[in-house]
């Protein structure tokens, strides 16, 4: 059997909060335009990284 890496919704939300914390932002706050963009980009970036990791794992199984 294989250990799979799935990411439940709550983990994704946890990650978003973690990123927001690092950026010193409160997700429930109304954010100025520039800052929402930066948090969103960090999340997008992290999500792309996650896909890379999962794809690499599948590749290595072969």
């Amino acid at each position: 059997s294989t250990t799979t890496l799935t990411t439940p919704q709550n983990q994704v939300e946890g990650l978003m909060h973690q990123l927001a914390d690092e950026a010193g932002l409160d997700l429930n706050m109304e954010l100025p335009q520039g800052q929402t963009g930066s948090v969103g980009s960090s999340v997008a970036s992290a999500e792309q990284d996650e896909l890379s990791q999962r794809l690499a794992k599948l590749r290595d199984q072969m």
């Binding site: 930066s38 980009s41 970036s45 792309q48 896909l51 794809l55």
Partner: peptide
Amino acid sequence: RAKRLQDKMVTNLNMA
């Protein structure tokens, strides 16, 4: 930022 995201998308495009 946009460039970094696109670069990662290129990596994933190739892997996918």
